[in-house]
Design a protein around this nucleic acid. Structure first.
Lengths: 347, 347
DNA sequence: TTGTATGCGTTATCAG
DNA sequence: CTGATAACGCATACAA
């Protein structure tokens, strides 16, 4: 790098001098503007602009004892097709966080124990004042540690398995998959589909069960009896190949099937391959793949999730009641696509 | 959150008291261990461990005038299939950075001007002491701004278009795509392929041109004359569909083609669809898709890239000469896959 | 409304 | 080798 002068950054004192006030006044202009007189305030602002002054992050943090930083774990690699969801969430978090003066920092961990070690490191160094976890389960050692050590955190994903979802110690944001799948199913029916199937994961994953439930609800409301519905549903492990197998089996059993909702874009892709794109398929996550291939999907609206997560952390930080409760359920958005540029490939 | 006591973190003073030394000695143990006597050092370490003490990040930053933080822009969404590369790089950066006591923070920007605004914000607030950019071009306003303002930065990607790649003001790390493609081609030939084609991007993108050059070199070394080679090459815009079209056209023209190297996994996927998986195809980036489908690809080794980038930044920070030069060219790794679980799908 | 004094936790300087 | 003192830049209680 070219070795210019160290070029000291301006401080409050510099601003104060230029504006002809005390440095305390400058601080007031920034932190309690109401307390300073109009004219003075303006002079200070001019000086600030002229010098390009900005409060020194570390000094402020040291003084206020707040890092204004939230930590998020970055996983090794977004699991294949669906990984993009976490990335989009991260992006949203960084973007909306910046609006509130928050910095997003990354950490990595190979397992829960390692992650707790990271918690300890970041907390002990006062490097962070909140964590965002990408999902949790009942008895998760990470959330237990965080609660025990009074650390602010929020999870993207309900704490599946916890008997009482309103546990006031555990703040979470989640996407209402049930609602989204239900809506997608209703839309398919409204468009004339007479037999809408569901391809989901084996029972036991909270997320997957919710999605299936949404589909079942829609069919029930449309007058299908439960036995009839049950025959239209099939399970598969996450994966293109298993999705294709399952879709194939389902179609063999129910040849009149004229639409399919699935628990993920991965399964949707498998189903599209199996049907040669002849049956409309709705995926979940609205990944780039869905967009590229051109099939319908359900978007998680990670931006809203990020905003909600930050709201909750704000509330935690101020020890306020977090609004109605410490949780937010975001309604996903159904993205219907009539046909895509690549669907033809599958024939 | 449960409202326990504020639970003050231990400071150097606490450690000093417990160890029965002055706090300066504690600081010395941490920063210049050589200067303190063995026995004392041990006592201090014991006290540190007992209290779970860690230097307060912000205090240290304020004092040392170094943020120990590097900023990386997170893009809205990793462009479809190939996006994962940047994610993996980010992960590697966070992981290797932590080993050196560096924090990775994220920022977002909608365009270069916006990004420069972010630079200004982060620099003026002393929030960051280096930037990592994901690629640049000649006359890039971002690098110009950074150089002009004496900010440390390194780019992942050569500054294409700059006449002198050894510009001492611009540090970069890149992957030697030419070498990788050449090696992949050689391996195909060694395995008995008699006619290896290349499917790449239109001329003009530095990256793409390099990759094509690697393939051409391998053919030349194998005794193909240039005219013969030229007929085996075709171009396509990035995208599955266009890759498929181009591969189809190439095969029609050169039916005896028995292997294909491509400039990206996206193009490779298109080619695989076109050939029904009957011709071995090598992609580039070794994305999750390549792994899932099971085709060969060239891995960028982002971990090595991250390490090299951090090395360069270290050198910049200490105003040292950055080793041999301010650049590192990483050799990618060819990942040959005989067949994958999903290749059959394409038939 | 404005200015003054003090401390956040750390490290650097310098005298013992 | 160790210990006192000052300063990094900011914000707050308190006095003017």
């Amino acid at each position: 790098m070219a070795g210019g002068m160290p070029k000291r950054l301006p401080t409050v004192s510099d601003v104060a001098a230029l504006a002809g006030v005390s440095r305390q006044t400058v601080s007031n202009v920034l932190n309690s503007p109401a307390v300073v007189r109009e004219g003075t305030r303006e002079r200070v602002h001019t000086a600030i602009a002229e010098l390009g002054y900005r409060p020194h992050t570390s000094a402020r943090r040291l003084r206020t004892q707040r890092a204004a930083t939230i930590a998020v774990r970055l996983d090794p690699v977004g699991g294949g097709i669906s990984g993009a969801v976490l990335d989009r969430f991260l992006h949203a978090l960084a973007e909306r966080g910046e609006e509130r003066g928050l910095t997003v920092m990354l950490y990595t961990a190979v397992d829960p124990d390692d992650e707790i070690r990271q918690f300890r490191r970041l907390v002990d160094a006062a490097a962070v004042d909140a964590f965002v976890l990408a999902s949790t389960y009942h008895g998760d050692p990470r959330t237990e540690w965080l609660i025990e050590h009074d650390q602010a955190f929020v999870t993207f994903g309900r704490p599946w398995g916890i008997p009482d979802l309103t546990d006031p110690k555990h703040f979470w944001v989640d996407v209402d998959g049930r609602h989204g799948v239900r809506e997608a199913t209703e839309q398919l029916l409204a468009r004339g589909a007479r037999s809408v199937g569901f391809l989901g994961w084996p029972a036991g994953s909270g997320t997957g069960d919710e999605r299936r439930a949404g589909w079942a609800e829609a069919l029930r409301d449309a007058g299908f009896d439960d036995a009839r519905s049950a025959a239209l549903s099939i399970v598969a492990e996450e994966g293109v190949a298993s999705g294709r197998e399952a879709a194939r089996a389902l179609l063999e059993r129910e040849p009149h099937l004229d639409a399919l909702v699935t628990a993920s874009d991965t399964l949707a892709l498998g189903a599209l391959i199996a049907t040669g794109g002849r049956v409309p398929v709705v995926g979940f996550d609205n990944t780039p793949v869905a967009e590229a291939i051109g099939f319908s999907s359900i978007d998680q609206r990670v931006d809203e999730v990020a905003v909600a997560a930050l709201d909750l952390l704000d509330a935690v930080g101020r020890a306020q009641s977090a609004g109605p409760s410490g949780h937010r359920l975001i309604e996903p958005r159904v993205v219907m696509r009539e046909s895509g540029p690549l669907l033809g490939l599958l024939r």
